[in-house]
Amino acid sequence: MDRPDLNKEMSSSEFQSFYYLKEELTAFCRENGLPVSGGKTEIAERIAYFLDTGRVLNNSRAKKKAPVVGVISENTKIEPDFVCSEKHRAFFKERIGKSFSFYVAFQKWLKGSAGKTYGDAIEAYYEILEEKKKGKTVIDKQFEYNTYIRDFFAANSKKSLDEAIKCWKYKKGLPGHNRYEEADLKALE
């Protein structure tokens, strides 16, 4: 079965049975007057609602105004509604080194740690790096491709990335979930 093009005639259950790129989702939104802001999951929910009701689901989140950040030191408290900025990046690169990166896990820690200090953040960064070295990190739901490729190689360490991608393309064209299964190797035959 070929994956259907995303269109307003399909049902939300049919839409949710297939994998679509974020670019396809935002193009659909633009064509149908839906907001394109937010992450892939939020946009997909908006489209499903539209397909069910024919109505536009308003953005549930109001735009947050980025807090004004003064001088940052290790004793400075992390502000509510933390936003990763160049000022923050410069601070962490100065304290941690050029290898610093706003890893997803670290961003989540920062956003959930208002009131703690930037010194605490540096300690948390190193703890997160250690956890990352120890094992399998959690990949967020919207990164289905990354999860699929990681799981493919966990089961098929001798296969190539080209083979993994070929299986991914086969899988995303099928209805249902997009998790790796041994049956996906059918695409290599």
Rank of each mutant, 00 (worst) to 15 (best):
S17L: 10
I165A: 07
E127Y: 11
V138T: 12
S60T: 13
R61P: 01
K186W: 04
K111L: 07
E14Q: 14
G54Q: 12
Y20I: 05
V104M: 11
T26R: 07
G112M: 09
F50D: 00
K116Y: 10
E189D: 05
E123R: 05
Q107R: 14
T26V: 08
D140N: 11
E163F: 07
F100T: 02
E23M: 04
K65Q: 14
K111P: 00
K136R: 14
G135K: 11
A105L: 01
E144P: 01
D120K: 07
Y170Q: 08
M10S: 09
L51N: 02
A44Q: 04
Y49I: 01
L6P: 01
S99Q: 13
F50V: 01
D140I: 08
D151H: 08
T26D: 02
G33T: 11
R89D: 15
D140F: 11
I139D: 02
I72E: 03
G38M: 05
S11P: 01
M10V: 05
F143G: 04
S85Q: 09
I96R: 11
A155Y: 09
L110C: 06
A114G: 10
R179T: 08
G70W: 10
Y180D: 00
N75M: 08
I47F: 06
P67I: 05
S101V: 04
A114K: 04
K166E: 06
V83N: 00
L57V: 04
A48N: 02
L21G: 01
F18C: 03
A62D: 13
S73C: 05
V138G: 11
E94Y: 12
I128M: 06
E23L: 07
E130V: 11
R89W: 09
L174I: 04
V68I: 11
E130Q: 13
E42Q: 13
T147E: 04
K159A: 04
R150G: 00
G54V: 06
G173P: 01
D140M: 10
F153M: 00
F91M: 07
K87A: 07
R95Y: 12
F91C: 06
K111A: 06
S99G: 13
L188S: 00
